[in-house]
């Protein structure tokens, strides 16, 4: 009896396997055919693409804008790519993007290149917000301010400062030993690039042996659990568990509190504006998108993603 019972079971199994296989292939071909036969039927026409390439610092922000804008204007799809400000500039010069994201201004050579390729046009600049980095320490750390020079000696390869006592800090509650734990970011992040450029300098290397976290929020989390640590992250990522330091350009000069106001009046040294560039006057759809970004809805997203919005007009 057992054999009689098992045989049909095997057939059943084989049949279902075959049926599933057939179904899968059938579905596959059906899916492939759908987009071709009825393109964009739901939206009632082809989606208008806006190509948006450039700065890695701005890539998260640009994606957040693009996502939110797809709700506002379903007929337009903004396609965001990172790669760095340089790539954005190159793409704009080559005409392969509508908007270039740049966490710096166009250099003179780049403007000349652009004019050679596009006679009679200028790269048109739109300021869309600010990027400001705070230097964080544990909330129990008595240190209140730090200079750019000191930060350079901490973070530069072969820099001179490696102990808290060398910064004049003694007895951090809960700290073990005198070692400064340097918290940094993975070496591709826009934040890392900006910090390296402004603190360590283009010609110097970062110190090896920093603890490299994989996100702005992770940096703050780690510092909040590590009394020996110092690190940098976007100003918007501050929490109750960490303390931001006032930063001065040189030791002895007045240290400036990081805030929206000090970013806007340019007194805070680790902040920079973020730009979007178009080739000459933007097309109507692109203009509409840029106006939305500079407007209230777009600037709210700037604040939500941890950057500094433009001053309210």
């Amino acid at each position: 009896m057992t054999k009689k019972a098992t045989k049909p079971v095997i057939y059943l199994g084989a049949l279902t396997t075959l049926a599933i296989a057939l179904l899968l292939t059938g579905c596959g071909s059906k899916n492939e055919s759908t987009p071709g036969s009825a393109p964009g039927a739901a939206t009632g026409g082809k989606k208008q693409p806006i190509a948006n390439i450039g700065s890695d610092t701005m890539v998260n922000l640009a994606i957040a804008w693009a996502d939110a804008y797809s709700q506002v204007e379903p007929a337009v799809s903004v396609e965001v790519n990172g790669g760095g400000s340089g790539q954005g500039v190159a793409a704009l010069i080559n005409g392969s993007c509508d908007i270039a994201n740049c966490s710096r201004k166009f250099e003179e050579k780049e403007i000349a290149d652009f004019k050679a390729k596009h006679p009679g046009k200028d790269p048109k600049e739109f300021m869309v917000g600010y990027d400001a980095l705070s230097v964080f320490v544990h909330k129990d750390n008595p240190l209140e301010e730090i200079s750019i020079d000191e930060l350079q000696q901490l973070y530069m390869k072969d820099g001179k400062i490696a102990k808290w006592s060398e910064l004049g800090v003694k007895n951090i509650p809960g700290a073990k030993g005198d070692e400064v734990i340097l918290v940094s970011r993975q070496n591709n992040s826009g934040t890392y690039h900006y910090f390296r450029e402004i603190i360590v300098g283009k010609k110097n290397e970062m110190r090896l042996g920093t603890v490299d976290m994989n996100g702005s929020k992770d940096v703050v989390d780690l510092i909040s659990k590590t009394p020996n640590a110092i690190g940098y992250s976007g100003m918007g990522y501050a929490t109750q568990q960490v303390k931001h330091l006032r930063v001065s350009k040189k030791k002895g000069e007045k240290a400036v509190e990081p805030s929206i106001a000090t970013t806007l009046d340019k007194s805070y040294p680790i902040a920079r504006p973020m730009f979007m560039y178009t080739a000459g006057d933007p097309a109507p759809q692109v203009k509409k998108y840029l106006d939305w970004i500079i407007g209230a809805a777009g600037q709210k997203i700037v604040e939500e993603t941890g950057y500094i919005p433009l001053p309210k007009q």
Binding site: G177, E179, V211, L222, K225
Partner: peptide, 12 residues
């Protein structure tokens, strides 16, 4: 992480 810091008295 906090347990390791406090048990072994290490900076990180």
């Amino acid at each position: 992480s906090p347990i390791v810091i406090n048990t072994f008295h290490v900076p990180i």
